[in-house]
């Protein structure tokens, strides 16, 4: 009959094992992926998460690639689908398709300085990279994370941040501080120069608002990091996740198929064209 075995629209119904509130509008869902035999993913890849009866949303995988059977996503409730996902309770089921897209090229950073720059919820797609770097720390000469959020209460994974601080170099900054804040204030770009040791052998991976990534990339290249060594994770409306629906086009690219991670020499010029 029909070749529906590899139907990219086929949804796997997975059980929610834990829901953790991160911030006012952001939460982390863990799914039991054991029923999906052989599920593996690369840090930076995404799944289509399906709230039954509402719709799908493309969400980066935020868990450890060494532990793929615990499928973790951090979601910001901003639309119909993500608000429905936010209501999911332990034991309920969520539909999953994926993993799709190309992850961050971690191999490129072996033996080099790995610099991670995250803004807001952009920390979630980088979390698998961070967990990998901590687990496989000797593979890298140095590991630095610069993380910016609007305010201290908008920081994701606050407890984990504390434990990461002892295993990698961590600069946390917020736009607006309060009295009990002991970290930095200001935009992430302020901390790039201080974090760079060997610009020409640094690999940077970024995720955050496009404006943040543009300014951070400009700072990095000004300081001597090659554009080819800067990787960003991009975001557009996605309906299928596999290059069939046309929604996530950005010039010559279908972000789901060709990305969502790109080196800056390929994607940078496109990000500066308004409404492309």
């Amino acid at each position: 009959m029909l070749e529906f075995e590899r139907d990219p629209w086929r949804v796997e119904s997975l059980r929610v094992t834990r829901v953790t509130r991160e911030t006012e509008d952001t939460f982390t869902i863990e799914l039991d992926a054991k029923p999906r035999a052989g599920f593996v993913f690369q840090p930076g890849q995404f799944n289509m998460l399906y709230a039954f009866g509402v719709g799908e949303s493309a969400i980066s995988i935020a868990g450890s690639a060494d532990e793929p059977e615990r499928l973790v996503h951090t979601v910001r409730a901003v639309g119909a689908v993500t608000n429905a996902l936010a209501k999911a309770k332990q034991g309920e089921r969520i539909g999953v398709r994926g993993p799709f897209g190309h992850g961050f090229p971690i191999a490129e950073a072996r033996g080099k300085d790995l610099l991670l720059i995250a803004g807001g919820i952009g920390l979630a797609p980088l979390r698998p990279v961070i967990l990998y770097a901590i687990q496989h720390r000797p593979e890298f000469r140095s590991v630095t994370l610069i993380y910016g959020a609007r305010s201290p209460k908008d920081l994701l994974y606050p407890r984990e941040l504390l434990s990461w601080a002892s295993r990698l170099r961590l600069e946390t900054t917020v736009d607006r501080a309060e009295d009990d804040w002991f970290g930095h204030t200001g935009v992430v770009t302020k901390f790039i120069e201080g974090a760079l040791q060997n610009p020409e052998s640094t690999v940077a991976m970024m995720c955050g608002p496009e404006v943040m990534m543009r300014f951070a990339a400009r700072e990095l290249t000004t300081l001597g990091v090659p554009e080819k060594s800067i990787f960003v994770s991009t975001e557009r409306n996605m309906k299928c996740g596999v290059g069939l629906c046309g929604h996530c086009q950005l010039g010559p690219f279908l972000l789901c198929r060709d990305g969502p991670t790109f080196s800056y020499d390929r994607i940078g010029p496109l990000l500066s064209i308004r409404e492309l």
Binding site: C245, G246, H247
Partner: peptide
């Protein structure tokens, strides 16, 4: 042109959902 979108259509009881893919326009 090949663009499509997907949508869920729920019956009045809320117990049955049809998930559709239909033509869309940029």
């Amino acid at each position: 042109c090949f663009c499509t979108t997907s949508e869920d259509r729920i019956d009045l009881t809320g117990d049955v959902v049809e998930r559709h893919v239909r033509h869309d326009s940029c």
